[in-house]
Design a protein around this nucleic acid. Structure first.
Length: 191
DNA sequence: TGCACGATGAAC
DNA sequence: TTCATCGTGCAC
């Protein structure tokens, strides 16, 4: 397998992101998150995500409407929404659906594929491992710094659906099955 | 201008 | 179960 000098990994087309979050989320599983740091590629297979459907989703940051922070969520699809949580950690989303919806997919865990030498089994851990912080907020995922790519060969897997993590404040929305992960994958976050 | 709290992770 | 640590959103 030639992952070393990967000119083969290309950003997914914008149209991939311009669909409802509930549709895009499971399709991100198995695809690669690619980050370029100092000219070196870091590649991880997406194994866990959560869908935030839009401003009507009470668990989504966008549910409070357009604010300085959520502006990116309401922007065009195919961009990164990166925010600071608990004053310590960063989390990364991809903006999806139509502009104005406020929908995004939180990337929760990766399986290291190339150039990653740190843990990636959690949304903040993977950002740390890939050196993703707010400098990349609003970044256009058509690359080259950060993008999602099609793997050379997609391995078959089963998808598990569960309630999202850490959104108990969202009432009925907290119980929706909007967390998706690859069944049996050891890199899926705990809890 | 002040303040409560969080889409987490690590230690105890 | 507790804590680190600070930006955000909303109350006053």
């Amino acid at each position: 397998m030639v992952i070393d000098d990967d000119t083969s990994l290309q950003p997914l087309p914008r149209a991939f992101y311009a669909r409802p979050a509930i549709e895009v989320a499971p399709e991100l599983l198995g695809r690669y998150l690619v980050r370029t740091v100092d000219g070196e590629r870091r590649v991880g297979r997406i194994v866990e995500v959560e869908a935030y459907l839009g401003s009507h989703d009470r668990a989504a940051h966008s549910s409070r409407g357009v604010t300085p922070r959520t502006r990116v969520m309401f922007g065009p699809p195919g961009h990164a929404y990166v925010y600071l949580i608990y004053g310590l950690h960063h989390c990364m989303n991809v903006v999806v659906d139509q502009e104005g919806e406020g929908a995004a997919i939180l990337i929760r865990a990766l399986e290291p594929v190339h150039g990653i030498h740190a843990r990636t089994q959690g949304p903040a851990l993977l950002c740390k491992a890939l050196d993703i912080d707010r400098r990349l907020n609003a970044y256009d995922l058509s690359g080259p710094e950060l993008f999602v790519a099609e793997p050379e060969e997609m391995q078959p897997f089963k998808i598990v659906r569960r309630p999202r993590i850490g959104v108990d404040y969202a009432g009925a929305w907290a119980r929706r099955l909007l967390r998706f992960y690859i069944q049996g994958n050891s890199c899926v976050s705990r809890r």
